[in-house]
Simulated scan of single mutants.
Amino acid sequence: MAKRVTRKPATSKRRPSKKKSSFFSAKFYVIVFFLALLCFGGYHYREALLYYFSFKSDKIAKEDKVYQARIFQVLQKHQDKVLGFDVSQYQGAIDWEEVDSVEGVKLDYVFVRATAGSDKVDLKFEDNWTNARKYKFIRGAYHYYRPNENSVEQAKNFIKNVKLQKGDFPPILDIERLPENQSMDSLQQGLKRWLELVDNHYKIKPIIYTNEKYYTDFLKEEFKGYTFWIANYNFFVENIKDDWLFWQFTEKARVEGIEEHVDLNIYNGTPKMLNYLTISN
């Protein structure tokens, strides 16, 4: 009788899942990218970081010092420009007597949020608006535009609550959000209605505030006759662009007299040119 041979089942060598392998590969490259970015950033801002970590108050958190180091470096590159800030109810109660400068650079102007949408008035507007003038800052009032609310009512809200005087900046329209229930064409028409109504009331062309992407994608071509105040907080952007009237380059500034972080702005011109921008009568 022939001997019966029992065969063992072949063991299969499992290949690693492509999906799992791809995930870890992608994760690895992301980590490498951010480590490289951190190293480059640390080298790029080495002098400013050394300044902050070595000499600045320990009361400033380490992560905050990185933001302050960038602010320091940007200001060093724009010593011939004019520095300002902007405030709203989110900064809380401000000790205006203490507000003076950032990194030794004098603050000359302030943008104050006045209204939002068709019925909102900033809770600190009256106080901030009055004190800005009292403490000799050139002041500007801005309206936060809500895309899904009536543009005419929004213009009326701003006009009702903002009394501009000689020496103030032109009115400012702040547009940051995309519409939910209307097309971009419809939004642009609404913005134009707001601008026209406000222009007709104050007899001066408003300034438009937005972020750089919004400006490039939706406003630059459609609103060519207007000047723009642009927000760009990119850590490695250090220079104001030619077509920006103002550049809001950080939202992380520390200003004496204000407990919360503050936005800082650079005017693209000299102090004399800044005065020409204000209302003359």
Rank of each mutant, 00 (worst) to 15 (best):
V102S: 08
V87C: 06
V5G: 06
F40L: 10
F24H: 13
K3R: 15
E153A: 02
K120E: 08
T250M: 06
E98N: 05
D174H: 05
W96A: 06
V112Q: 03
I208S: 02
L264R: 00
N150F: 04
R7H: 14
A61S: 13
Y202G: 03
K19C: 10
K27N: 08
L195S: 06
F55L: 09
V5H: 09
S57I: 10
S151A: 12
F23P: 00
P206A: 09
E212V: 13
S54N: 11
W96E: 09
D174G: 01
I71F: 04
K156N: 09
R7P: 04
E47T: 11
E47N: 12
K166M: 12
R139N: 09
F55H: 08
K203T: 09
A2S: 15
V152T: 13
A93N: 14
N181A: 10
D185M: 11
N161V: 05
T130Q: 15
G117S: 03
R7A: 13
M273V: 06
Q68Y: 08
S22T: 04
A36G: 10
Y43N: 11
E221T: 15
L50A: 14
A69M: 08
V112L: 03
F34G: 01
K65V: 09
S151L: 03
V198A: 01
L37H: 10
I258Y: 02
Q76V: 02
A231R: 01
V105D: 06
E176G: 01
N232P: 01
I172Y: 05
Q68H: 14
V198N: 02
S101H: 14
D95V: 09
L35P: 05
L50S: 13
F218I: 08
R70C: 02
V5E: 07
T278Q: 06
K62G: 03
D108H: 12
A132S: 15
L195D: 04
T115E: 05
V74I: 13
K192G: 02
L38T: 08
L38D: 00
G140D: 07
N239G: 10
K56F: 14
L274D: 08
K163G: 00
G84Q: 02
A116C: 04
